[in-house]
């Protein structure tokens, strides 16, 4: 679409900018200030230079949390994306069943995040939970509060439970948008199911899938509430993701300076990923308008 150049359009954007800036820029400036100072409360601050950044960069605590974040994001992407596509492919294209399926599938998305944690706590505790109790009585040595691997499996299962539906809904909407003519052509050519998927459905889903992957990556990268409720970051520090560590530092120990320094580094990583996200999406839009706007 050809847009006209008009700087008066700024006036329509000003309220958004003001509202978001109030909650984004003022806190961010404050965080930068905190990151270079130490405090003992009462709004008294002492300049400490880059001490907090040195602590952060030279200890393993931050990098361990970062590694956990990356590992977690990779695992859930590797599970949720193929699973989501598979489920979307198996959904019928129309009929009352689809509506029922979609409503039921969307349900986990609307549950408050700490309740998601609670649900999985109630579900997988070995004393009161269906999953925990069943596994233990089957002879497995399962205990997500003590065993690192069990904790990870439970958190991954929780995330798959919580968010796969998003991938399903996105892929499904991409699939529905494919005109029936493509399938008829494939049938006439005698294309196999795999060939149809590989050469018709997958390319047509590329747009929504890119967005699904990037969104799931971003959201899993900032995960906080669900594992916080479920494991509290334990056993040990094995499920302490960056957000959890940050909040522990800031609110739990009230170490404003180190927490602020960590916030900034975290924010820089997010900015980098977000920039990649934005570039990919805008280039995709551009490519689409060039090829005749197949939305």
């Amino acid at each position: 679409m050809n847009k006209t150049w008009n700087n008066k359009a700024w006036w329509m954007v000003v309220p958004v900018v003001l509202l978001v800036a109030f909650s984004a820029i003022i806190p961010l400036m404050t965080v930068v200030n905190y990151a270079f100072q130490d405090t003992f409360g009462n709004n008294e601050f002492y300049w400490v230079g880059i001490e907090w950044f040195e602590d952060l960069m030279e200890s393993d605590r931050f990098f361990d949390a970062l590694q956990r974040n990356i590992l977690f994001s990779c695992i859930i992407l590797a599970i949720e994306v193929p699973l989501g596509i598979m489920i979307a492919l198996s959904l019928p294209k129309s009929g009352w069943k689809v509506n029922v399926y979609l409503v039921l599938m969307a349900l986990p998305l609307l549950i408050p995040w700490n309740v998601v944690g609670t649900i999985w706590q109630v579900f997988s505790r070995t004393d009161i939970g269906l999953l925990g109790n069943t596994l233990v009585s089957l002879g497995f040595d399962y205990n997500y509060t003590r065993d690192v691997l069990d904790a990870w499996i439970t958190i991954v299962a929780m995330d798959v439970w919580h968010w796969t539906s998003l991938v399903v809904l996105l892929s499904y909407s991409g699939l529905v948008a494919i005109p029936e003519a493509y399938f008829q052509a494939a049938r006439i050519d005698g294309a196999s199911k795999w060939a149809t998927f590989r050469y018709i459905q997958l390319p047509k889903m590329r747009g929504v899938l890119t967005i699904a992957i990037l969104l799931r990556f971003m959201d899993s990268f900032k995960i906080y509430t669900e594992p916080m409720v479920l494991t509290g970051g334990g056993p040990g520090n094995s499920t302490t993701f960056m957000s959890i560590d940050l909040v522990k530092m800031a609110i739990g120990q009230f170490d404003l300076g180190p927490a602020a320094a960590m916030s900034l580094v975290y924010f820089m990583i997010i900015l980098l990923i977000c920039y990649a996200f934005f570039t990919v999406v805008t280039n995709m839009d551009k490519a689409e308008t060039k090829t005749g706007g197949a939305s």
Partner: peptide, 30 residues
């Protein structure tokens, strides 16, 4: 959706970063 204006792309990017950034980053001085 209708106009190009000064810094529109960058403004949009900045808005999106706030959607993507973890609340934990901002919440400290809230």
């Amino acid at each position: 959706s209708r106009y190009n204006f000064l810094g529109d792309k960058h403004l949009f990017f900045w808005l999106l970063t706030n959607r993507m950034a973890p609340s934990a980053v901002f919440v400290l001085p809230f």
